[in-house]
Structures are given as structure tokens and as C-alpha cells.
Design a protein around this nucleic acid. Structure first.
Lengths: 169, 169
DNA sequence: CTACCTGCAAAGACTTTGCACGTGT
DNA sequence: ACACGTGCAAAGTCTTTGCAGGTAG
């Protein structure tokens, strides 16, 4: 298959978009998937390697999200595929365990690349400019005990912080 | 104004609805608003006391949520007002600080009565039966420090747990 | 070759908005 | 009296689904 590398610079696309902070785009990639290993994961999960899927993975590897479906569609250049295909591909890629769907209470889902060995983190969202920052090493590994104490199994959680970022204060 | 007390028993309405656990309906009401003080709050926030608003508050006082807009509409009996009015009333009542909007990542907002003096809590949601339980006294009062360390002000957070409840295990 | 994937169009679910009429204060 | 609230209808936003044609393995 010929992979048409239609990924364009996120700065060009998102110019004027305030709620994605440039800061978050530079992210320590030490645990991130590269394209090769991501495609291997996709294959292992019995999904086919198609141009839209490769383009989405490239976009999410090159730019640190989370991004809405629309944003991802713009990132891969609308020419690559239809918006509906982005929805469907994101669903498959999520099933393969490569990306994670986040909800921040604004009624729109966002996706971001998982890190290898499933190291998870939380977000801080500015109430004013909507910038999303990532909290690494949040020291909350044991937080699920609150649910386990209630007899729940297979516990996971979603934790998002909202506030005014230094610039908006 | 004549307040038509059209609230009917939640058991009658929600019969067969699995995702609202009966358990959560019996909730220690020590810090809950009663109708009188809730209406006073509404008045203080410059909102008018209307039949739909009274009915919604009665429903939320009598039944421990969180509930979707549709569920609240059923709780107050569809006769009281249109679904659109429920949306608008919930927005006003939330602005008055009496109820809280929650999002659990299924694309549907839910509302629940606040407790007086703003004592907040978190939820545990069963991945299988979708039952929502409330975690009181979660010992996480200091959790906002994670965001404050990043220079954020006016920090709040949303924390939801997902897992398999004892019955579904 | 065949099951899986995609494009296009349409529908679905939830929520918001416009406007005329009604009501609380 | 008049600003605020409501009903009905319509539109808006995000997401899912159906079906015919296309493609990876």
C-alpha cells in the first residue's frame, strides 16, 4: 500500500484556535508509540492497515492531543477520508488499545494516543481559554481503592481538573 | 400560585429501568435542601418561582439522582411542562447553585441536587448495569493540589469511577 | 477471493434557539 | 405593567447506521 503522507503541520491548521495550547504539543515522547509499533498493534488486533488509519496514527503521534474528531479530520487533511471514516477508524484504533477516548463534559469526545505500558494521566482544563494540559506522575495510582472499597471490580476512573490557568488569572 | 404536586413515585416511573439503583434512592438527607430553603435560594438568585421549577426541585429532593433531563421530565410528570422547559429550568436552577450537572462520558448530562454548604462527592458507575452509586467522604479534599501545583486558580475537578459492581461480578 | 473498509446520505440522540403567548412580582 | 418564563416548532451539533462499491491480505 502506498501511504500518502498527508499530515500537515498542526500550527497551520489550528492557527487561531485558542483551546489547544502550543505547550502541550511538545511532549516528552519517551513512552509514546512510533508508527511502526502502532501499526503492529493494529495488526495484532486483527484490523487492516488502511490509509486513513495510518494517517490518523501519524497525526496523533506527531501532535499531542487530546483532539476532537473534527480536529483529527483536519489534521489528516480532509482529502484523506471522510469525517465518518474518522469516527469509524477512531473506534477501531481505540479497540486496538492505541488511543483513549476522553470526555471533558462539553458534549464532545476527544481522543489521544495512549502511552506504551498503559501509563495513564489526567488533564487540567482552563475554564477560560479551554487550554488542556496534561498532568504526568500524578501520584494517584491508588485512587481506585475508593471504588474497590465498595466492592467494585475492574475499576478505572476519569479525573479532570478545571480552573484558571496562569495566563488567564 | 397553586403548586400542583404532580410528583409521582419514582418506583412507578422507573420500573424496569436498571441503571438507577434503588439503593441510591435512600440517601441520608442531613445536608439536603428542603423545598422551602431551595425556593429561597432560587429567589435570592433573582429567578421566579414557577410551577415547573417547583416540581423539578420537589422531584430532586424526593429522589436521589443524578438523573438525565428525560428522567426528570418523567419524574415531574410530563403534564407539568414541556421537555424544553425542563432544559431551561435546569439551567436556571443550576445557575442558582441548587443543582449540579454531571457528565459520565456517555454523551448525556445528568443533574443532581447539591448539598448545603457545597459538600461534594464522587460517583461509581457500574460498567455493566450502569448503576450509579455515590461516594461520600472520599478523603480527597486535597486532590485539587495537583492542578494548583501547575499554577491554576479556582480549581475544581470531576472524578468518576467505573467498574463492575458486586452484583455484576 | 472474501471479509473488511470506505463514501455518501440519511437518521438518531441530545440540546439549543426563535417567536408568540402567558404569568409572577 | 413588564420583564421573565413557557410551549411549540425548528434548527444545531455530534455521532451512528445502511448500503453499494472498493480494497487489504
Amino acid at each position: 500500500m502506498h501511504i500518502n503522507c498527508n499530515i500537515i503541520a498542526i500550527e497551520d491548521i489550528l492557527s487561531g484556535v485558542t483551546y489547544i495550547d502550543r505547550m502541550t504539543l511538545e511532549h516528552d515522547p519517551k513512552e509514546q508509540y512510533d508508527l511502526k509499533s502502532a501499526l503492529e498493534e493494529l495488526k495484532r488486533a486483527r484490523f487492516r492497515i488502511t490509509e486513513p488509519r495510518v494517517a490518523i496514527l501519524q497525526a496523533l503521534i506527531a501532535n499531542h492531543g487530546p483532539f476532537t474528531v473534527e480536529e483529527i479530520h483536519k489534521l489528516v487533511t480532509k482529502r484523506v477520508c471522510d469525517l465518518v471514516t474518522i469516527y469509524r477508524c477512531l473506534a477501531s484504533i481505540e479497540k486496538a488499545g492505541l488511543i483513549k477516548r476522553c470526555e471533558f463534559g462539553d458534549g464532545t469526545a476527544r481522543y489521544e494516543l495512549c502511552e506504551k505500558k498503559n501509563h495513564h494521566h489526567h488533564h487540567v482544563i482552563c475554564k477560560s481559554c479551554k487550554k488542556i494540559e496534561t498532568l504526568d506522575d500524578c501520584e494517584l495510582q491508588e485512587i481506585d481503592r475508593f471504588a474497590r472499597k465498595r466492592g467494585f471490580a475492574q475499576v478505572s476512573h476519569s479525573l479532570e481538573f478545571f480552573g484558571l490557568c496562569p495566563a488567564c488569572k
